[in-house]
Simulated assay, not measured.
Amino acid sequence: MQTTPEVGDEFVAISCVNVGVGPGGTTSMLARVALVDYKGHVLLDHYVQPTPGVTLTDCRTASTGITYEDLYSDNSLSFSEVQMKVGKMVKGKILVGYCIWNDLSVLGMSHPAVHTRDVGLYQPFRNALRSPNTIIRLPTLAWTLLNRRCSEGLLNPVEMARAAIDIYRSAAEDWENAITNRNWPSALPPSTFSRCYY
């Protein structure tokens, strides 16, 4: 028996948390990734094992809550496994998130630009907060638009992905109408991350 697709089935929200590798831990490496559906239900939430041969120098625990043990727990997968899983789950979907280029970059992936909905780039949100040329922080968007706190303690990719999809949903009708009318309503991502889109 064939089931009817539910409203929002074409959307997946993403968020990643990184740790530091290399000298001084200033280079970011994927440490945890989460995907949620249109209603905020968790589709995927995994820690990511450090890439062999890469020196993990800073778990950034004070902000991420991630420890070395987390990255080798039963809920951790190799980078290639995570990349493959995420790739399969977002293929053909509209990807929602905040500063999506950061997530795509650390995952080593690209996604069709027209199939992204980045709440950090949506111009009406920027205009409403009187910051037309500035990327507004996700906690600020969540508080201003949803009266909800987000990422006040440790960075939690599930919480951040849920915030992104809920922020998107708050403007979904206007957002999609603008796209249908060929009036792309978002600013462009940084040109240095053009490889993350096609």
Rank of each mutant, 00 (worst) to 15 (best):
D174F: 14
A161S: 05
S131A: 12
M109P: 03
G87M: 09
L104Q: 01
L104D: 04
D9F: 13
S170T: 03
A142C: 07
S15V: 13
V12P: 01
A34V: 08
T140I: 15
R60V: 06
S110M: 06
T64W: 07
N181D: 13
T140N: 04
L30M: 06
I165Q: 02
L43G: 05
T61V: 10
L56V: 12
P132A: 00
S63A: 15
N183W: 13
T27F: 08
F79Q: 03
R148I: 11
I94W: 02
R32N: 07
V90E: 05
E173N: 11
D103R: 02
E10P: 12
Q2W: 13
L71R: 03
R182H: 14
T4R: 11
L121F: 02
F11Q: 05
V36P: 00
M109R: 04
S76K: 00
I167P: 01
E69P: 12
Y98A: 01
I179C: 13
V19F: 01
T134P: 09
R117W: 05
Y38W: 14
P23A: 08
L129G: 04
H111S: 02
H115C: 14
Y198H: 15
E173F: 13
M29F: 02
C99F: 07
P139C: 03
S73H: 09
G8V: 08
Y168L: 13
A187E: 10
V158R: 01
T4H: 09
F193Y: 14
G20V: 03
E10L: 10
R182P: 10
S28H: 12
T4V: 12
S191E: 14
A128M: 03
E159D: 07
T57H: 05
R169D: 08
G87Q: 06
S28G: 07
A163T: 11
F79R: 06
N181K: 05
A13N: 04
S194T: 15
V48T: 04
V119F: 01
G20F: 04
R182E: 08
N102K: 14
T4E: 03
A171D: 08
M109C: 05
Y198G: 14
S15D: 13
L56N: 08
E81L: 10
V17G: 00
D58E: 10
A161M: 05
S191M: 15
E173L: 09
S170I: 02
L138Q: 01
L121A: 02
A13K: 01
L141W: 01
T51G: 08
R130H: 12
S194N: 15
Y38I: 10
T140Y: 05
Y68W: 12
I100P: 02
G120P: 00
N177D: 12
E152N: 06
M84Y: 10
T51S: 12
V7S: 06
V33S: 03
S63T: 15
P139M: 06
N18T: 14
L107D: 02
D103N: 04
R162L: 04
A13H: 03
M89I: 07
G120V: 10
V54Q: 11
G20M: 02
L154E: 03
D37L: 10
S78H: 11
T192H: 15
A34G: 06
W184V: 14
T55W: 10
